[in-house]
Amino acid sequence: MLSVFQVPKPVKAIFDKFPLETYPPVQKCDDATAYKQEERTFYLASTRGSQQLPNETFKLGVYNVFEEPNSKCILASDPWCLFTQLALCKKNDLKLCSKDSVKNASRQHSICILSQSAALNSRLPILVEGSSKRNVRSTESINEILNSRVSDPERIMYMCLLDTTVYDCWVSQVLLRTSNVRFLEIYYDKPHQSKALEKFEMINCKVSLMKRNNFYLRHSEIFKNIKSATFYNSRNVDNLVNSLFTSCEKVLSQFQELLGSDAFFLKGIVPTYLDIKIASYIVCILNLEDGNPLHEHVLQNCGSLIRHAEEVIKYFAS
């Protein structure tokens, strides 16, 4: 039935003739843009060999990367980003690349250094899926998917414990017990153009980092302290950070006990998501600067966890 709003077919036919001539798309090649993208992209090696369709590839957006000294692999500098990186490697049978091999890897899946502003909620990691059919997944959405892959309640409980106690300690340490230079190396990649701008950017970055995983709700005093920069200095902050550190120490020693002399947790033969999660925290803690209390503690008291983390990275290294 013909609707009033329906365009009559003859009119539509005439209309469809426009444009009378269609040229190919305007070339988008830009050397500088290509250089910048290449500089910030690190490809992951596929073990499957077969080429995947462009819309089946992904890019993982992370804050920054570093070279792990033992395996020489390029790893994300933030524990949640690293967990996602390793989890994606596990799911897609991918291998981590070193700086030398990264450029020779098949150019399909990759991790990219992005600004936190690339995410709708200013939190990384983000997962950019597809090429022409694009979907950008948020940190929360990635977590939801990855957590849904774990069905064992015991493992779920351990992962939740890590994502609260150890996570809170990690965040408090990078916010308050890490030098600005190191913080920027972990959560910011660009060379800094001005000291004043650097300070503003760092505060923005710290604020959005605190909003991830609801840290700011659990520790509002620390949040207020950071957000107001120099205007509000709570004397309780030191006590709060120390208390988080003590809890974290306890949890890490409990995980050491749980691991015992096994290669992986809960008698696993290959790394599970729980192994990946613990390893992500340990690797990132070891990447903190010398003198950081958490770094020193792990180095001195968590030998088994360090060995475990090395095993996990070795498993995914090409």
Partner: peptide, 19 residues
Amino acid sequence: KAMSTHSSDYLLFQCGDDL
């Protein structure tokens, strides 16, 4: 700042601060 869940690579790499 990116405002879409369909942002292109070009836009994602443009995000951030500059002077």
